[in-house]
């Protein structure tokens, strides 16, 4: 991970752009070049921003770059089109299964005091 490779991911990270299979319609996030189900070619696909929490966990074993604040929640989110993604939750003290969430843009980490600030999708309760 570098300040350059982070940049290459920005569109998918900022906007929940996934992929959809041209053959069978299977959707994925992050996007795939070839469908995992049928091997067909895929196209970029804008996933819906809203969904619900299916499962969640409070990560206490914090990895480098994500360890400057508190433990945070990670969740399996089922988006409104049925696509399941894994993401960080924010602005929530105690999530619940079924909780309605929406994708938003938040800071993920920085490359130190003088380095780049990296932003990406997180999910928070619907306003």
């Amino acid at each position: 991970m570098t300040e350059v490779s982070d940049w290459r991911f920005r569109r998918y990270r900022y906007r929940l752009i996934g992929s959809r299979c041209r053959e069978c319609g299977e959707t994925s996030y992050p996007p795939r070049r070839r469908c995992s189900r049928c091997g067909g070619a895929t196209e970029e696909y804008q996933l819906p921003r809203r969904g619900r929490v299916v499962h969640y966990t409070l990560l206490k074993a914090l990895p480098t770059r994500y360890n400057h604040y508190r433990p945070y929640f990670l969740a399996v989110v089922e988006l409104s089109d049925g696509t399941r993604v894994i993401g960080m939750l924010t602005d929530v003290d105690e999530p619940s299964e079924g909780m309605e969430v929406e994708a938003t843009l938040r800071k993920l980490y920085t490359y130190g005091e003088d380095g780049k600030i990296i932003y990406g999708v997180k999910f928070r309760p619907v306003l």
């Binding site: 990560l59 074993a61 990670l74 969740a75 894994i86």
Partner: peptide, 21 residues
């Protein structure tokens, strides 16, 4: 790397969500 290190996820986090599932 996108799924994990670029997204705040870790191996342990994935295992925990699998346990929930």
């Amino acid at each position: 790397s996108f799924l994990v290190n670029y997204s705040g996820m870790t191996e342990i986090g994935l295992h925990a969500l699998l346990a929930k599932m």
